[in-house]
Design a protein around this nucleic acid. Structure first.
Length: 830
DNA sequence: ACCCTTCTGCTTTAC
DNA sequence: GCAGAAGGGT
């Protein structure tokens, strides 16, 4: 193999074009050995306009640096300027800088911004990319050192699950009790923590299928190797192994990477941390940028601890705090700061701004989620009439099911909206199917891809046929396509199957020949056409068929810029966001998670209710840590707003198909009175559920300090709610003691909690969960207070008669609304 | 092989 | 309330 380090493009000096006409500008310094400007030297143009802290972060090039960058403090600017600074001082060639991001989007933006600052030669930064894309790059170069061939394929979650299912079947494990999905998550978790199969402790391995987890993990890894495949976790894990087991390779990378930069450090998991630490042992010039207060991905392995511990991990680290906020008004920052101050595990920053204080954050209660959507719709229209662009407004929800209500409302209003995120382009079935065809063409050994489309569209190659192919493949030791080819030549298959399979194999051979002769987009069209795949959707008369055909066209279009099919497939396996940017002015609807990093003039934050936000599951499964992460999510939400942050909660919401009443989120209690204005939704209902749960003792006592709402919380609606709450709390206290349960449950929410807790609502009461001495969550399995035949009243559906009662779930025949399933504490006896 | 019924579960989601 | 998966019947 040719020495990969001496590729000609790698060490060409990064000749910065004379971007700025100023003498002594960056162009003049873009040479190796150029000295930094002396004390009397002129300040380079790219440092203009940085505040002192930003500048310190940019100029501290040597040694470990942690930049704690609060929301809206110019984090990306610091990162990009720092790279430009390093380049223009001639401290390193572009190819000697490792710059890691989490998303392709972030990597792209960084490239663009550096490009805008130094000219168009960002091509010269080969090591700017996501953790995973850089991992792939390393693995492809040294594949054979970790038992792979350089052309290995990267499996996505779907392939992964299919593979695991096969393993579970082979091990005769009941897939009902131990679903492949769970195993996949477990293995991902191990990989996130940098654990290879032999490193999984016995206790951990026991977590799946009575101790067989570890063996299954080992089997899975063996299967991947046999398939010459890796999953996403492996991209890091195998890179780590590569570096650990091959000191010479590690030394090469040490020599190479003179400067390391990491974006969103608070989101790194253990594997990523280990990987970075290995690489940083070379130059020690590692600069991590992040915000512990915006760590919201703990559930997928991110370790806030990484950022909290930076000092001790990288001795002598310089810490720079960016606290000057350029985004939001004073009231918004004040509200966000007070909220996040309730978290204990944080490094602590205080954002300030020199701008105006602006409008207070508003909190609005609505009767139910529909009224909430209506109120937000009206506010949007009002703002629009004041001349504010829809594109500068966003609705940020906790869970995607909340989106539907807004979509419905906006459709009837004729309000233009855009849903960001959602099912990703590449995840859609039709895209995955099309890609599977292309994968089989590009790499005939891709068994998983072949399996996916062998009978899509339906061509009579069902389970029986597939099993035969499988058996033969295993017996002879060849990939499925090859096995199919051999079977076609034998007498073993049923005549009909044999003919169909022969055609399919022949088609793949034909397409593979055409691969070299035409652009990949044209080939894709031919494949989709000749395979009958397009036709399948044309015949499909379901509502979304047209959209799927549209997506297929979009896929074909998106293939055009690539050099060849293989290049396209490589790209696709690493790139998520192929979402076409819808044209026109529209309100954005998205989850809080996908809003991170974005900003809007006006931000609507609906659904601030206990159980939904903070989400019950976060509390149940992660306890205090979960609560703190939810709070950071709230913080992220508020800090997205430049001028207006508008928080909403509803007293009634439909979850899992049932109407439930809800309690305002404790986070509302944690917003400071002086930055918040409580308004009432027009509609006159106020809210009827209960008050915020802050005072009922589920949290540490200091959480309760914020309960004292002064004048701003003395609106009639609020007071009405308070008195409701008192009554509810008393009623629940009685319920609880009657049921023999320990006290201290969620006050007015004890019944509500059960609804979010699957175990309880299906009869398996899980009881309260005590974490660090505080009861964080509870649920109840108490029998219903209502008998079949009882007359009841429901706030939403009116009068009715109980048709069936099962635990606290009732089936009620309502006089007007028909039969509904409701929970018993939403109805009263009449 | 395919269709229809039943069962289950249900936060967030990059690569 | 709804969607996706799985199982049984034809």
């Amino acid at each position: 193999m040719a020495d990969p380090w001496n590729r000609p493009d790698d060490d060409i000096p990064f000749d910065l074009p004379a971007h700025t006409p100023r003498p002594g500008g960056i162009a003049a310094r873009a040479r190796v050995g150029a000295q930094p400007p002396g004390p009397a030297g002129r300040v380079p143009a790219y440092l203009d306009g940085l505040n002192p802290e930003q500048r310190a972060a940019v100029e501290a090039t040597e040694g470990p640096v942690l930049v704690l960058a609060g929301a809206g403090t110019g984090k990306t600017r610091v990162l990009t300027t720092r790279i430009v600074h390093i380049l223009s001082l001639g401290l390193a060639y572009p190819s000697q800088i490792l710059a890691v991001t989490f998303t392709n989007k972030a990597a792209r933006e960084m490239k663009e911004r550096i490009g805008a600052m130094v000219g168009e030669q960002v091509e010269g930064m080969p090591w700017l990319g996501t953790f995973h894309s850089i991992g792939v790059r390393m693995l492809r170069r040294h594949a054979e050192l970790v038992g792979l061939k350089s052309g290995f394929t990267i499996l996505d979650t779907d392939d992964q699950i299919r593979l695991l299912k096969q393993l579970l079947q082979a091990e005769q494990i009941d897939e009902k009790r131990w679903p492949a999905r769970l195993l996949a998550n477990t293995i991902d978790g191990w990989k996130n923590r940098g654990l290879t199969p032999d490193m999984v402790s016995a206790g951990e391995g026991a977590a799946f299928a009575n101790g067989r987890g570890q063996k299954l993990y080992a089997d899975y890894q063996a299967r991947l190797k046999a398939l010459n495949a890796v999953d996403f976790g492996d991209l890091l894990l195998e890179s780590i192994r590569l570096l650990r087991e091959n000191p010479d390779v590690l030394a090469e990378y040490h020599r190479r990477f003179r400067y390391i930069l990491v974006d969103e450090y608070q989101d790194t998991n253990v594997a990523q941390y280990l990987w970075l630490r290995l690489l940083a042992q070379g130059s020690h010039n590692v600069c991590c940028v992040g915000d512990d207060d915006q760590s919201i991905y703990g559930w997928r392995g991110a370790e806030v601890d990484n950022i909290l511990r930076f000092d001790s991990d990288f001795p002598g680290a310089k810490v720079v705090r960016l606290e000057r906020n350029y985004r939001s008004t004073g009231h918004i920052l004040g509200a966000a700061a007070h909220l996040i101050a309730h978290n204990e595990g944080r490094l602590g920053k205080t954002l300030f701004s020199e701008g105006e204080s602006g409008e207070k954050v508003t909190v609005t209660g609505a009767w139910d989620s529909q009224e909430e959507a209506r109120a937000i719709g009206e506010e949007i229209e009002a703002l629009q009439h004041q001349g504010r662009a829809l594109s500068q407004m966003a609705i940020l929800v906790r869970a995607s099911f909340q989106m539907r209500e807004f979509e419905d409302r906006f459709v009837t209003m004729g309000l233009n909206y855009r849903v960001i995120g959602g099912p990703r382009f590449y995840e859609r079935a039709e895209i995955r199917d099309a890609l599977a065809y292309l994968r089989v063409i590009a790499s005939p050994a891709d068994d998983l891809a072949f399996e996916r489309i062998v009978n899509v569209p339906k061509r009579g190659l069902g389970d029986a046929a597939l099993r035969q192919i499988h058996d033969h493949a295993r017996a002879v030791g060849v990939p499925l396509v090859e096995a199919a080819r051999q079977l076609v030549g034998s007498e073993e298959l049923k005549p009909k199957v044999r003919l169909t399979l022969r055609d399919l194999v022949a088609s793949f051979d034909r397409w593979r020949e055409q691969m070299a002769a035409m652009p990949q987009s044209q080939l894709a069209e031919i494949v989709l056409d000749e395979s009958g795949y397009t036709e399948m959707w044309q015949k499909d008369r379901s509502a979304d068929a047209a959209g799927r055909l549209e997506n297929l066209k979009e896929l074909v279009r998106s293939m055009e810029p690539f050099e060849n099919l293989v290049g396209f497939l490589e790209h696709i396996s690493l790139v998520m966001d192929a979402e076409g940017s819808g044209a026109g002015d529209a309100v954005s609807i998205m989850t809080l998670h996908s809003a991170k990093g974005l900003e809007f003039d006006v931000v609507f934050l609906p659904g601030w209710e206990e159980g939904l936000f903070p989400h019950q599951r976060a509390l149940d499964e992660q306890g205090r840590a979960g609560l703190e992460e939810e709070r950071r999510l709230a913080y992220v939400g508020i800090t997205r707003a430049r001028r207006f942050a508008k928080v909403f909660f509803a007293s009634n919401r439909r979850i899992h198909g049932m109407w439930q009443s809800s309690v305002p989120s404790r986070f509302l209690d944690e917003l400071p009175e002086n930055h918040v204005e409580v308004t009432e939704s027009r509609g006159g209902h106020g809210w009827g559920g209960a008050t915020s749960a802050g005072r009922y003792g589920y949290g540490p006592s200091r959480f309760d300090e914020a309960q004292t709402f002064g004048s701003s919380y003395s609106t009639p609606g609020w007071q009405r709610a308070q008195s409701h709450a008192q009554a509810n709390a008393q009623a629940n206290a009685q319920n609880n003691s009657a049921g023999g349960r320990r006290e201290g449950q969620f006050g007015g929410f004890s019944e509500g909690a059960s609804r979010y807790s699957p175990g309880a609502s299906r009869g398996g009461a899980s009881g309260g969960r005590v974490i660090e001495g505080h009861l964080v969550a509870s649920s109840t399995g108490a029998p219903s207070r209502f008998a079949v035949g009882a007359r009841v009243f429901h706030q939403k559906f009116g009068y009715g008669e109980v048709a069936a009662a099962e635990g606290n779930k009732l089936t009620v025949q309502f006089d007007k609304a028909g039969e509904k399933r409701v929970l018993d504490n939403y109805v009263e006896a009449v």
